[in-house]
Structure formats: C-alpha cells, structure tokens
Design a binder for these strands. Sequence first.
DNA 1: GCAAAAGTGTTCTAGCTACACCCATGC
DNA 2: GCATGGGTGTAGCTAGAACACTTTTGC
Lengths: 247, 247
Amino acid sequence: MGKKTSKKDKEFLKTYDPGSYDRPSVAVDVLVFTVDLKKGLEVFLIKRNNPPFEGCWALPGGFAGIDESLEKAAARRLKEETGIKKLHMEQLYTFGEPGRDPRTRVISVAYIALAPKDKVGYSPGDAQDASWFGVSLMEGRVVFDSDIHLAFDHESMVKLAIERLRGKINYTDIALNLLDDKQRFTIYELQKIHEAILGKELNAANFRRSFIMNYVNKGLAEETGELCKEFSSRASKYFRYLKNTAG
Amino acid sequence: MGKKTSKKDKEFLKTYDPGSYDRPSVAVDVLVFTVDLKKGLEVFLIKRNNPPFEGCWALPGGFAGIDESLEKAAARRLKEETGIKKLHMEQLYTFGEPGRDPRTRVISVAYIALAPKDKVGYSPGDAQDASWFGVSLMEGRVVFDSDIHLAFDHESMVKLAIERLRGKINYTDIALNLLDDKQRFTIYELQKIHEAILGKELNAANFRRSFIMNYVNKGLAEETGELCKEFSSRASKYFRYLKNTAG
DNA sequence: GCAAAAGTGTTCTAGCTACACCCATGC
DNA sequence: GCATGGGTGTAGCTAGAACACTTTTGC
C-alpha cells in the first residue's frame, strides 16, 4: 500500500480521460427463441460467410451505437435480421473474455428474446442464410437438430440461455411470450411450450391444475368463452392473459 | 426489405472496421457486501471528491483494461480499494443506458462480491474516504443506515444486487461466502447472514433443520467436533463446509 | 431466577407427483 | 373401436412455517 500516488494517478487517468485508452468494442448478441408446438425449442441463427468462423452459424448481433441503449441495439439487430418487432427481451449475461473474438477485443452483452413462431417475418432464402434450428440441452450439453457448429463462444451463450429459461419458467410468466396469441391460447399450447423449454414431458392433468392455480385463480388469466378445436377432437377452452396486454 | 445492399454495407462496416466507430467505454463496478452479525448487511462505498456527483458515495469501479477479462478487472479494482483478495464474485448485470454517466457513454458491468467481515484489509482513514454502510431493501426501496446519496445509477445497482442475493440465497450456497471461516462456523452465524440478506428474522429451529437437511445430510458440511462458546452460554457445534474449500 | 442461544418434537399446510378414470370426437 | 387430447378425482410425499418445549450456562 505504499504506492498511493501512482494508484491515484492511474485512477485519475482511467476516470477522467477514458478517450486516451484503448477500448474494447461493445456488441450485443441476441438469442431469439421460439417454440414450434411439434418440433420443440428453436433458436435463430445466421450463417457466416466471412472469416473468422466462416461457414459456422452465429447469433444475430452487432455493435452498439454510441447513443443507443444496449436493449435498443439488441432490438434493432433483431428487427433487422428477423423482422420481429415487439417481443419479450431480457438481458442474459455479458461475455468479455479477451480472445473470445480473434479479431479484436469485443465485449458482448447477450439478450434473450422470445418470439411466437408465427410472428417471425423473416423467410429463409433471403439475402442472408439464416434459419431456425431445433435445440435442446441434454445432460448439460447443447444439442442441435442439425450438424452445425457455432461461431465464437455462441454455444456457451445458448447453453446459459436455456439454463436461464429453465430456471425462470416455473416462477415467471415468460412462457406466455412464446404463445402465438396471449389473448387466445389453450392450456395445451402452454404445456407444449413448457415441455420444449424443460426438455421433458409433463403430466397434462397436473399442468392444467397448476395453470388454474397460478394464473386463473390469481386473476392473471381468464377463459375467453370461446372453444378451440385445433389440437384435439374434443374442444378445449381458450384463455386470455390479463397482464402485459400490449405484448 | 428493399435496401439489402445498404444493410449489408452497414453490417460490413460494423463487423470489420469497429475501429472507425465511436465506442462506448467499458467499466466494471463492484458491489462488495459483507454481513456484520450485529448490524446486518453492509455495502462498501467510496466518497467522490470530484465532479460529477462530488460528495456522493459510489461503488468501487473503474475502466476495464484492453486485455483484461471483466472478472479480473472487477477483482483488481476490489483489491485496490479494499485489500480483499480472494472471495466470491459473480456478474450481476450490465448497465448501459446512454446518459447514466454525464461525461461520456459508459457501459458498466456490475459484479457482486461477498466478503467475510474480518477479511477486509481496508481501514477507514486511508487516502480515500471509503467505508461500509448498513443497507437494506424495504418494500422495494434501498435504505441506508446513514443519510447518504449514491452517484450515477449506483442505487439501482444496489437494489438489483440485494434482490439477486435474496433470490439465490435459498437454493445456492452463496451465504457461506460471508462466513468468517467456512471451515469453522456455527448455524447461528449462518442464520444471521440469511436474516441480514432477507431482511427478516427466521425461526431458529426451522433454520437449523433446513441446514441439516440441505448441507449435512447431503454431505456438503459436517461437524468439526469442536464446540463454540462465542455466541451463547450454551456451547454449540462448529461445522465445516466440504466444498469450495479454497475460498 | 432470568435471558438467550442450543436443540428436539409435533402439527398443519401447500405444492408437486403419480396414477386411475371418464368424456368427446375424428379417424 | 381406438387413439388423442380434455378434464376430474384422489392419494402420497416433501418442504416450510408455526409453535411448544427442554437444556445449558453466564449474568
């Protein structure tokens, strides 16, 4: 503790003259997930056609503008890539290991976005090679439905994202953001979404009861009065979510 | 979707020539918490003696070096400010709103650090004006034991940190990082730590049982065989944590 | 004796799980 | 009639919370 002056000098420089420092770049990466009721959890990826990691698949992302909030930057990139405008988005984690991008030091703030499958405006065959990939987490390992490799540290981002979703799905309402229509959905659809995220089947009777308990009985959701004949021969009730109606 | 070229150009620039962009600065802020068994939860703050927010208290922090991992940067700042070397540290959240620092765009990655009270080498009265402040979260508001104001958005960082600690304390072992000695502690001490973080008193009988269930019966902790006479007239058993022994 | 922590026992409840069973209907 | 989803009922297990009670020892 004898070098107080140099420490204070360093502090001074760092605090008041950041412009003179070599600075890391700040990027955002977006993990867009959707659930296909038949195929399960899917993540949106873009094929890289330049080095590094040429030919690998990567998360949509890009550098944050100097006057742009991180969340806005993520939302902008998302819209540019997928056409999706309004959806649930939350910060996942910030990845900043030196060397995670071989070109230069890049600190990447990762965001999770949840999109109803039918709201995705992007159509494969556009300028960029981009598409949805089925993904799951089995025994701690990320498994894709195709034989693909991800660029940078994006696979560990996917892993962390699925773990986060699994951890939150039982005590938050995030799963509802994956419904095609929060104002008109069946318990069956919601159950499929839970199953896709958790990577295991759930007991329908118990799932129904927990939905009634946690949503309907608490005034968070109600029956619309309409009946759904889409998923079963026997009609089921439509429900309506009563919060975050804007989504 | 008609302006594919300009979009791709933009993408090109952003991806391959980040040096030409105006870039935000990247900083780390550290929320160092400790628990005083008598006074409760405390956070470490430093008084600012320059604008902006002159006279306000702020979290220790600073800019991240170009070749330094974020975690390492946080650990370095922590050691410089408090003398604490080895302790539990985890990423909290990244704050990046434009305008959160009035001087320039600064993106700050916040880390939570948990320190046993007796390991803090820093002594008030050093070069900088720095000290521990009792803090709690009551009805969603951050309350300090002194009439102080925090610089920047540091109060919302404190709020988020306490919420995170409260959310994790019941299903992780983080509380153990606040013990003076993980290899020699009593249930009483651990209970006081839980109470400090949760901001409420717990039933001692039930707390004891849950500790036995979650730690001892699962092989994560065991009795040392020694008895403790520090906290009560009646001696109590010392326990030893059997994981993360290095901490 | 009193206060305060150490420690044991009991009861009640809420939530989750498993499973059995009936209903409705398209094929 | 059979498969599939819709929907109800019930029994068991477990973690928590609440609370009553005894033990130990410094003051």
